[in-house]
Simulated assay, not measured.
Amino acid sequence: MRTKHTPGTWVLDSDPGGRLYVAQEYQGKPGGRICEVFQNCLVDPNTKRANGNILAAAPELLEQLRNTADMLRSACIVITDAEARQMALETVAEARAAIAKATGEKA
């Protein structure tokens, strides 16, 4: 298993009181709540919704970043230009650091 977070697709939803939350999708609908997206005097409603959208996309973003880092690392074998290969390896390292931050692991 590659993740410790709540599995599955996450979606942004709201309750009848207008509170936004991220939930695990269950049978095409929001299921169990993962977190509430808060708003205060420093966060306007549009920013609150944008924060919720990025939180709900986090599992997919993480998986795609993992896949992209793996593919780029594999592509480094055929990159013949030393400068381009170094840039690709640095990008892979940055991606792995972001993955470690997201998963709570060491980079």
Rank of each mutant, 00 (worst) to 15 (best):
M1V: 09
R2A: 13
T3L: 08
T6K: 02
W10G: 00
V11F: 00
V11D: 00
D13G: 07
S14F: 04
S14I: 00
S14K: 13
D15Y: 02
D15W: 01
D15N: 15
P16Y: 03
G17W: 04
G17P: 01
G18S: 04
G18M: 02
R19H: 15
L20H: 03
L20D: 00
V22Q: 01
A23T: 03
A23V: 01
A23W: 00
Y26Q: 13
Y26E: 09
G28M: 07
G28F: 07
K29D: 05
K29V: 11
G31D: 02
I34V: 07
C35I: 05
C35S: 12
E36K: 10
V37M: 03
V37G: 00
F38Y: 12
F38W: 12
Q39D: 03
N40I: 07
V43H: 02
D44K: 13
P45Q: 06
P45L: 02
N46Y: 09
N46V: 09
T47C: 03
T47K: 14
T47W: 03
K48T: 13
K48L: 10
A50V: 03
A50C: 04
N51E: 08
G52W: 00
N53S: 08
I54G: 01
I54V: 15
A57K: 15
A58K: 14
A58F: 11
P59T: 06
L61P: 07
L65Y: 09
L65C: 09
R66C: 13
R66P: 10
T68N: 11
A69H: 04
A69D: 07
R73P: 04
S74I: 04
S74E: 14
S74C: 08
A75I: 02
C76S: 14
V78D: 12
T80L: 01
D81Q: 04
A82W: 01
R85M: 02
M87T: 13
E90S: 14
E90C: 09
T91A: 13
T91R: 15
E94L: 11
E94D: 11
E94H: 14
A97V: 06
A97L: 08
A97K: 15
I99Y: 02
A100K: 12
A102S: 11
A102H: 06
T103G: 02
G104V: 03
K106G: 10
A107P: 15
